[in-house]
Design a protein around this nucleic acid. Structure first.
Length: 489
RNA sequence: GGGUUGGUAGCUCAAUGGUAGAGCAGCGCCCUUUUAAGGCGUUGGUUGUGGGUUCGAGUCCCACCCGACCCA
């Protein structure tokens, strides 16, 4: 029932169209022009002074008519304010216009602040104008908009009807603002690098493809900004970050949207350990500012606390091997087939695991990652898992990297970035599986000029927002998540 | 891709295989301090789409569309 053509309007819309026509027939603009206001609805409420004059506009979200006096609720993102209208005060002509009002219309009022006998701060309207007629009824006033599909397809209705949704997005954009402030304070430069790339590098994922007509070349939407940010280290920048969209042409799920927001930061002369501290400080600052503390509570639908995540520092740092050994003692003492058998005994599905390290990784995911709720930096992961990091000088089978786990999920990886162009080329060739066109030669060429040692980190912002708001699905934290179009829409 | 599950009025939800209903919204009337205002009356449906079974299908079966959850 979405986006129906005007020819298929139902009765409710037809009635509203008639009211629109009636307004215009009376010479009353149904879609008014500029209407300078004292402030947003919430600001007017906050600045309420008995007897004070205010001008306010908003959407009518409730009306209570009582013969010759009327109460309206005007709302916007910031809140709700009651307006009181008296027929006697408005005059015959405005009363007739008021009769053409529907819930959902935008109106403007001017009047005096007063408190009703029930104690409700209100505006006694002296002036009443239409600013925007609504042709469709709003979702039900008490239950709001419940239908998940409609909430995502028509997010504007979700935002009108559901305060919870408004709060999540307010928090999302506060989080992003705080991230920028954090890096700014530490002297990092926010940069922009190409979203359209000739080679989609920096991660292992299927890219979206497009074509540049004038240049006659195929391009890919980036799957990561990493290889360009490193070019900036070559160019002499020492602290850079980018906070913007990545695109991956893969499945859509509770945790995946085809376009998602990624933070990447690179810090010359630092390493993975310094980056871990940076991430720790970043997340704590954001949580402190946006959530008001370091204990993050996730609630169930009844509002009961389902889980508490404690972000208090210092966060645990533990080696990958030690965590696996802790969860499954004796794991590394077994031989390859011993590990396979033990994984099967543990009830793990390892049928698709070819390599030994994959079996271990499966044990890690099920027995460590999924059970780690409070923050933990998993350090020195096996080198098969990460192609762009430096090997640990003390243990060549592992890397100088961390993977931050919070709430059973990977939140942020960080590396001591590989800056040896010869080793980097070997790794990329290995990763490309022999497909030359998947290797970013220009990046390797840049690296050959010399890149300083550096620490790097990445963080999926959508997942961070989920973590901090308790949202169960990525669609709850993305304003307009991708959904299949409806057949008739 | 596989499994489970859902789609009924504008919205929120009902309805043993047997006349598709309620609340809100809407429409009409009453009401000058209400706030899920109230009172009386009333309109509104190709039950996601297309087939099938049946005397009879919102309900059972098949296919498809669009979601949700779990798994890969």
């Amino acid at each position: 029932m979405l986006c129906r053509p005007m020819s298929e309007v139902n009765n409710l819309t037809a009635v509203r169209l008639e009211k629109r026509t009636a307004l215009l027939g009376r010479g009353v603009p149904a879609y008014g022009a500029a209407f300078p206001v004292t402030g947003d609805v919430g600001e007017v409420r906050a600045g309420f002074v008995e007897g004070g004059k205010v001008t306010m506009a908003g959407r009518v979200t409730a009306r209570r008519d009582m013969g010759k006096s009327h109460f309206l609720d005007l709302s916007d993102h910031s809140g709700r304010m009651q307006v009181y209208l008296q027929d006697k005060a408005l005059g015959e002509e405005v009363v007739a216009v008021y009769g053409l009002l529907d819930i959902g219309d935008f109106v403007g009022v001017e009047g005096e602040c007063f408190t009703t006998k029930t104690g409700e701060p209100s505006i006694k309207a002296e002036k009443f104008v239409f600013l925007g007629k609504s042709l469709h009824p709003l979702p039900e006033k008490w239950h709001g908009l419940q239908d998940v599909e409609a909430r995502h397809r028509q997010r504007y209705l979700d935002l009108i009807a559901n305060e919870h949704a408004r709060n999540i997005f307010r928090q999302r954009f506060a989080i992003i603002r705080e991230i920028r402030a954090f890096f700014e304070e530490r002297g990092f430069l926010e940069v922009e690098t190409p979203m359209m790339q000739a080679v989609a590098g920096g991660a292992a994922a299927t890219p979206f493809e497009t074509h540049h007509n004038a240049l006659g070349m195929d391009l890919f939407l980036r799957i990561a900004p990493e290889l360009y940010l490193k070019r900036l280290l070559v160019g002499g920048f020492t602290k850079v970050f980018e906070l913007n969209r990545n695109f991956r042409n893969e499945g859509v799920s509770r945790r995946h949207n085809p376009e998602f927001t990624m933070l990447e930061a690179y810090w010359a002369y630092a390493d993975f350990d310094m980056m871990a501290t940076l991430v720790e400080e970043l997340v704590c600052r954001v949580a402190q500012k946006v959530c008001g503390g370091l204990k993050i509570e996730h609630n169930d639908q009844e509002g009961m606390v389902r889980r508490t995540i404690d972000l208090s520092r210092p966060w645990r740092r533990a080696k990958y091997r030690d965590l696996v050994e802790e969860a499954e003692p004796g794991w590394f003492a077994r031989d390859v087939s011993g590990r396979r058998n033990r994984a099967l005994e543990l009830g793990l599905d390892i049928s698709h695991c070819v390599e030994d390290y994959e079996v271990t990784q499966h044990v890690f995911e099920k027995l460590v990652e999924e059970k780690t709720i409070d923050p933990c930096f998993v350090i020195h992961c096996p080198k098969e898992l990460v192609p762009l990091a430096k090997t640990n000088p003390e243990d060549p089978s592992s890397l100088d990297v961390f993977e931050l786990i919070i709430n059973g999920q990977e939140i942020a990886p960080g590396y001591s970035e590989l800056n040896d162009p010869v080793v980097q080329r070997e790794r990329l060739v290995e990763q490309s599986g022999g497909e030359q066109h998947k290797i970013d030669e220009e990046f390797l060429h840049a690296l050959e000029y010399g890149m300083p040692p550096a620490g790097g980190m990445g963080m999926g912002i959508d997942r961070l927002v989920m973590l901090l708001t308790g949202a169960e699905s990525i669609r709850e934290v993305i304003l307009f998540p991708h959904l299949k179009p409806r057949a008739e829409a």
